[in-house]
């Protein structure tokens, strides 16, 4: 799991251009949106692409996906349970 969390942090930094952050600076339990990393609706769309591209998980409802994107930890749990690649 820790490996997946680290990988996910690296991927998010790259996809969302958070280039001033390092993986250790991101708290995997902190909220991703508004507070915490302060992400917005476009970032959510980018994360949906990332989920499908890297883990074969297709999310079709942008609003619903917010539950999965609560924190990196929640995301990682969801990926571990549902990944197809």
């Amino acid at each position: 799991m820790n490996e997946l969390i680290l990988k996910l942090k690296e991927e998010i930094i790259e996809v969302l251009n958070l280039e001033d952050l390092t993986p250790d600076e991101i708290d995997e339990n902190a909220p991703l949106f508004i507070e915490g990393l302060g992400l917005d609706s476009i970032d959510a769309l980018e994360l949906i692409v990332l989920m499908e591209k890297n883990y074969g998980i297709k999310l079709t409802d942008a609003a619903q996906s917010r539950d999965i994107f609560q924190s990196i930890k929640v995301m990682a749990d969801y990926i571990a349970a549902n990944r197809t690649k």
Binding site: V15, I42, L45, E46, V49, E52, K53
Partner: peptide, 9 residues
């Protein structure tokens, strides 16, 4: 498929 929204936006 799997296009990123940011460049479009």
């Amino acid at each position: 498929t799997l296009l990123n929204p940011t460049p479009f936006m």
